[in-house]
Nucleic acid binder design. Sequence first.
DNA 1: CGGGGTAAATTGTCTTGACATTCTGACCTC
DNA 2: GAGGTCAGAATGTCAAGACAATTTACCCCG
Lengths: 247, 247
Amino acid sequence: MTSTRLEFDLDRSSPVPLYFQVAEQISEAIRTGELTPGSRLDNEILLADRLGLSRPTIRQAIQYLVDKGLLVRKRGVGTQVVHGQVKRSVELTSLYDDLRRAGQDPATRVLSIGTAAADETVAGVLAVPIGTEVLHLERLRFAAGEPLALLRNWLPLGLAPLTADALTERGLYELLRSAGVRMRVANQRIGARAASPAEARLLGERRGAPLLTMVRTTYDDQGRAVEHGSHAYRASHYSLEVTLIER
Amino acid sequence: MTSTRLEFDLDRSSPVPLYFQVAEQISEAIRTGELTPGSRLDNEILLADRLGLSRPTIRQAIQYLVDKGLLVRKRGVGTQVVHGQVKRSVELTSLYDDLRRAGQDPATRVLSIGTAAADETVAGVLAVPIGTEVLHLERLRFAAGEPLALLRNWLPLGLAPLTADALTERGLYELLRSAGVRMRVANQRIGARAASPAEARLLGERRGAPLLTMVRTTYDDQGRAVEHGSHAYRASHYSLEVTLIER
DNA sequence: CGGGGTAAATTGTCTTGACATTCTGACCTC
DNA sequence: GAGGTCAGAATGTCAAGACAATTTACCCCG
């Protein structure tokens, strides 16, 4: 089994790090099928030699792809492309992003927006004193013209200029990101329960219909809570997908 | 703000890599509160110097903790302990493991175990031809004496010696791991639906009660599917927790 | 012909050294 | 006093080399 002779374009004057250029091109070769699942990469020393790079740089590129789940390394054996195509969606996504990517034409109706005093739960997760004024949102999300989810959020004040108009046009995550908030970690608790009469009316379901619930707290790169949400989805129309990669 | 003078025990004769020893002890210092959230670590060069290690080794230790979400690095600034305490459970866990860790005394009743011909769905996710014989399991999981979940699994034959007795005593993941299966990636789809009469009877719920459902496929480090499961949990008794870390 | 030991191949770990990039804060100028 | 400029500090990237640990395959011996 001879390994594929990959071609690489390296631009040493580019601000893009060399290890990243290498990783991108290996990744591309996997995507296009030039590197088939199970095939072996050349060993690190040979690769480094052929590209005129040092071994640590090559290792950094490979490690990056191993962390993303595209490659597998084994000491004494070599580096291989993983078999099978696992969906790789480990990103911090929001419902709005997901729907738009799926071509589902999301729409939002802002039910309420304004400040509220943080109760014990909200104060706890946002790490502010009880009673602190926080921003409270209630939105109804539609996809393909159908009501899909009831979204309630609490955020610290002053994070981003959020208005009803802006929230009607764009998703919360998108607005936060463009305001310079760098979300990095999210903790989600996913459950299910029967719809209350009020929820059923808003979502167009029968009373007692199963709802998928998610309580999420999102933190920025400093570990500060930037958003807390309590959402309810119509189980008949939506499910969540999660991919876990063990290191 | 002076940085804490950490003490480190390094054992160069240990088979445990030095970078890992350092990472463990920083992690421990964070856990015990010796390093408080927001506090700055000494810079990498100073740290390397004090421990008698090279800078790349220190960087490897820090990078490991950054990936786990315990530390934050900023170029030109330094390395800090993240604020807040995000739950760090990015592991590939099974229900059985979760329950036992929570001291919930899990128990299992094996409803059926045997081979079955793979239908289109199962064949697709396990990457075997339709009609291939696969192992099929049906289990009822109890916690604290109460029925909690209905678990159905399909596995390739010959992976591990699975018997009804073994499955009564231990979890599926535990048995697979001890048979040398290295699970690395899991793709999960989480939803909710109303309980069918049969499910309601087994789980001790009323007909139509909301169930939390999870369809999961687990892959080993080669990317080969090792397990496919379709599970239903009593929403009134259980919820799933997921932590996402963006790199 | 089978089993065990050995050697080769490959990745894992660690060191030393250099320069680039980015952020912060102090200083200087207007 | 406000704003821009510059220097210092810290992490980011890259190189070249050495040795360790592990896996695989081969060869030799019984």
